[in-house]
Simulated scan of single mutants.
Amino acid sequence: MPAKTAAPADAEAEAPKKKKLPLLIGGVVALVAVGAGAWFFVLAPGDAEAAAEPEPEPEKGEVVPLEPVSINLANGSYLRLGLALQQTVEAAEAVDGSEALDLAIKTFSGRTTEELAKPEVRDQLKAELLGEVEEAYPDEVMEIYFTEFVTQ
């Protein structure tokens, strides 16, 4: 009979071991996952080095401010617009901004003050004007800046 009593005691001793085994395996899997994640996001070679080096900006030339102009808007309103032209490095001398001002007048004339009060409309018109200015001044102008933008 002693053999029968020993078997249940061994079964009771193995029961806690069986409960601890899945917890132990789960803990090991979790540690491996955390370690792999840390390596991937922090220590991984390759893209991290490329992302750390910013793209160099193109070299910019002189900024040429132009005299502000008054542009007639719809309903008897007007826009006082000041521009500056960012030249490229290749531009030999300061550009004459007369054509840029003419293009600005054509772009903004007849608009309403409500239209021009919306930042997204202003940005769209500025992008349109920049495209026309770049076409008019090939390899000379790379950006335009509004130095005044007042509606009344």
Rank of each mutant, 00 (worst) to 15 (best):
K60A: 11
E99V: 14
D96H: 10
E114A: 15
E93H: 11
P8K: 05
M1F: 11
I25R: 14
K126Q: 15
A7F: 09
L83D: 02
L43P: 01
A7D: 03
A38C: 09
L125F: 03
E49D: 07
E115H: 06
A15V: 02
V34R: 05
L43I: 05
E134G: 02
T107S: 00
T112W: 06
A92P: 00
G97V: 04
K118E: 15
V121F: 10
E62D: 11
V95A: 05
D47P: 01
Q87R: 11
T151A: 06
L21G: 01
A91N: 09
R111M: 12
D123T: 12
F149N: 02
P2W: 04
I71L: 06
G27C: 03
G76M: 07
A36V: 12
L85A: 09
P54R: 11
E14I: 08
F149G: 00
Y137M: 06
A33P: 06
E12H: 03
E67M: 13
V150I: 12
V29A: 15
E57T: 04
E114Y: 10
E90C: 02
V63Y: 12
P138T: 09
L125T: 02
L103V: 14
E135C: 04
F149I: 05
V95S: 03
W39K: 06
A38D: 09
E128P: 00
A136H: 03
S109D: 09
V150Y: 15
L83S: 02
V150F: 14
D139L: 13
A94M: 15
P54Y: 08
A91R: 10
E53D: 09
E114Q: 14
A94R: 15
A15D: 05
G110M: 05
D139A: 12
